[in-house]
């Protein structure tokens, strides 16, 4: 196989610690822990397993502010070989279209890759668009929702893809982009050895000087979509509670619940 597997990694706020400013309806970013997008960990794990089996080299890349180095170092401490951060004011405000372009440009510059392995989506934006977007910019196939990579050779990759009503076995030529789901493997924990290596490793930082993309195609300017409004969803639910603490109250509670469901018209 070609030498490299590229894994795009996103640093995201930890969902648990995301808080809303009730007054302004905006997300409070301050003091929120940043982590590696949990779904990217599956991509890292999938790449590591491929390297364990077939050899090669794994390059982690991330687009974001300088502090995203931490996410890349986490990947290195799990076993990723090297890391590149794409960081430039010109990248700020990119939507998924522009982000895909920037990542694709970086991957092209890295060169000599057989696979790009992505998480299926990020837990903050939740779009799942960047993986296929990268493939589209690179002009290579995209296999999404990959649950298992069965075989990899110099030219071909065979993988299982989980869809609504079953599993497809697909074979693609290389290079290709895969987006993987949780079944690709439980991520390994970083080791002490890995942490030491990550600590000593210099993460390369590339800006648009290195990538040379038309400035009109990146950042806010290059993004077709615009966010016009952000607001808090209305939670208009009021929970009716029925207690079923002992044998005697189970029956009445169940009756009330079934009555409620019938009223709502959700029983067949």
């Amino acid at each position: 196989m070609a030498n490299k597997i590229v894994v795009p990694i996103k640093q995201v706020p930890e969902t648990k610690s995301v808080k809303m400013d009730e007054k302004t309806g905006t997300v409070i970013r301050e003091g929120v822990d940043s982590i590696v997008n949990p779904l990217d960990l599956y991509a890292i794990e999938a790449a590591l397993r491929l390297r364990d089996r077939y050899g090669g080299e794994i390059v982690g890349i991330s687009m974001g502010p300088k502090k995203s180095v931490k996410a890349l170092k986490e990947a290195v401490s799990m076993g990723v070989d090297s890391a590149i951060l794409l960081s430039d004011r010109a990248f700020a405000g990119s939507d998924t279209w522009a982000t895909s372009l920037i990542l694709a440009s970086a991957i092209r510059k890295i060169g000599d890759f057989g696979l790009v392995v992505c998480g299926e989506r990020a837990t903050d934006g939740d779009t799942g668009q960047v993986g296929p977007g990268i493939a589209s910019f690179l002009g290579i196939p995209a296999l999404t929702y990959v649950s298992r990579i069965q075989d990899l050779s110099d030219k071909l990759c065979r993988a299982e893809r989980l869809i609504e009503d079953g599993r497809e076995i697909l074979e693609t030529s290389l290079p290709a982009v895969l987006t993987v789901i949780k079944e690709a493997g439980e991520p390994r924990l970083p080791t002490l050895r890995g942490k030491k290596r990550a600590k000593d490793l210099d993460v390369q930082i590339w800006g648009n000087d290195e990538l040379g993309i038309d400035p009109d195609k990146i950042g806010l300017k290059g993004s077709p979509t615009r966010v016009v409004k952000i607001y808090r969803p209305k939670v208009a639910r009021k929970c009716t509670i029925a207690e079923a603490k002992d044998e005697a109250s189970v029956g009445p509670a169940v009756d009330r619940m079934c009555g409620f469901l019938a009223d709502k018209g959700v029983l067949q």
Binding site: T191, L192, G194, K195
Partner: peptide, 11 residues
């Protein structure tokens, strides 16, 4: 034989 490091809330 191995030392794993957990330095964020997930790990």
């Amino acid at each position: 034989s191995e030392v794993y490091v957990a330095d964020n809330s997930t790990t």
